[in-house]
Amino acid sequence: MSFDYDKYIRPGKLPHIWCPGCGHGIVMKGLIRAIDACGLKKEETAIVSGIGCASRLPGYMDCCTLHTAHGRAAAFATGVKMARPEMNVILVGGDGDGTAIGGNHFIHACRRNINMTYIILNNKIYGMTGGQFSPATPTGAKASTTPYGNPDPAFDIAKLAIGAGATFVARGTAFHANQIDKLITEAIQHKGFSVVEILDDCPTTYGRRNKFKSVVEMMNHLKDIAVPVKAAEKMSPEQLQGKVLTGVLHKEEKPEYTEQYAQVIERAQAAK
């Protein structure tokens, strides 16, 4: 059956503003299917973002939404979750928003293990502002601010999340559309801070500069580099050269922050 996305989209908001072939729309569809699969009620679901093309996503969603300051989605979302722990809180944003200006908020949300889900749309560039390099831009890639090739190594965002303490970390791609909702569903159902990195495309500011002739070529690239974690176990380091692992990369149980905080309140009240 055709999926009814309209029931989660604010009336009159489509077509969206994203460029032709921008993967952000594919990720938004995956998020909607995941919200539907988890049976989340719109009035109990907050979708929070910072600034950027990716961060425009909540504006389309017929849920409780917050479009905040650049890099600050995690800070605002933490506020929502602390005040209303019963809310389902989902963060969305780009690699620039989440790992450059918002990098500090990101790692500390991971460290706290607060029960929220963070979807990072990693298109390796600052799309909205015309293609400056981000911490996820690969070495050698061209951006408006690295016209002779980027000298910096890129963050592996999923590894960064694991290192900082996130208790569920997964990675997918905009090409593998039917996996996106499954990863986000599992992330939402996980108790603790979950991160889903989706490798995405920005044909307008990244593709053109980096010799991708079309959106289709960018999609084929995502298809080629992705290796499911299970398949990777049987592959040699040489075979894995230039590949990126997809699927659930990390999952563990650790005390959750709002529950820990509720105990602090109890102890403080008992001490009065």
Binding site: L14, W18, H24, G25, K29, N178
Partner: peptide
């Protein structure tokens, strides 16, 4: 297979099998 509906970034295709 529904792949076109799943991948269209613009909510522009609906396939009813």
């Amino acid at each position: 297979c529904m792949q076109c509906e799943l991948r269209c970034p613009d909510f522009a295709i609906k396939v009813t099998p």
